[in-house]
């Protein structure tokens, strides 16, 4: 009796497995048919049209040239926010590599209002808009909120000297490449969005980089 029940159970399991397998196969077949419908790059061919190999090669060369024309000319800066590295480059060649600190990614909410700040270093292409010697930090509202202090009404109370190093390169919207007092944190993501550089490297950057230099941040 037990033996019959065991065989029956085994049979039932096999049947269930077969049914599942058949359903999956059917789905796979239907899915494959649906997924491969229109399996040619017809749309691709329509866009380009029938052209000779010579024409296509010429078009490719022009397109490559147009893309390379969009690349920064002369010396430019590349910042890798994941590695906290800054590269001074020219025509794709790295001239200098510098350890930096970039945005922490932290979020600060204003307890008194609806404002919120995300401390990321902006990604994409920026431009060195101005060069500053002995920069002073005009503390924005978030700097006071973060420290749990009241926001001052006077401009004078916002100004702090000596925290940004000897030089700064402005990238616009309040973002700077500047010096730091916290050199042991270079190589870490600790800033409020600015790019912190060590004193020696900052001086070299300041002397090398003209206004208008492109800065690519990723």
């Amino acid at each position: 009796m037990q033996l019959t029940a065991g065989i029956f159970k085994k049979k039932a399991v096999i049947i269930i497995l077969l049914v599942i397998f058949t359903i999956f196969l059917a789905l796979e077949a239907v899915g494959f048919y649906l997924a491969s419908r229109g399996h040619t790059t017809i749309s691709t061919r329509k866009v380009i049209g029938a052209k000779s190999l010579h024409e296509l090669r010429a078009k490719n060369t022009i397109l490559k040239k147009r893309i390379s024309n969009l690349s920064p000319k002369g010396t430019y800066i590349v910042v890798d926010t994941a590695k906290n590295s800054l590269y001074l480059e020219k025509e794709g060649q790295i001239l200098k590599e510098v350890v930096v600190s970039t945005g922490s990614g932290g979020i600060l909410k204003d307890p008194a209002g609806n404002r919120q700040w995300v401390f990321d270093t902006p990604r994409g292409e920026l431009t060195v808009q101005s060069k500053i010697t002995s920069p002073v930090w005009t503390k924005p509202d978030w700097a006071f909120i973060e420290e749990g202090e009241d926001i001052p009404k006077s401009y004078k109370d916002r100004v702090e000297e000596g925290v940004l190093g000897d030089y700064a390169l402005s990238l616009g919207n309040g973002y700077l490449i500047h010096g730091t007092l916290y050199t042991r944190l270079l190589g870490r993501n600790v800033t409020h969005g600015c790019i912190r550089v060590g004193d020696k490297d900052l001086k070299e950057l300041y002397n090398t980089i003209p206004i208008g230099t492109k800065v690519i941040i990723f």
Partner: peptide, 22 residues
């Protein structure tokens, strides 16, 4: 066909390279 595909790739890249993004 290979060249046509490459042309489409370059055209798409040109579209993206025109913008100041990564």
């Amino acid at each position: 066909a290979g060249l046509e595909d490459k042309t489409l790739l370059l055209e798409s890249e040109l579209e993206l390279a025109k913008k100041p993004h990564i």
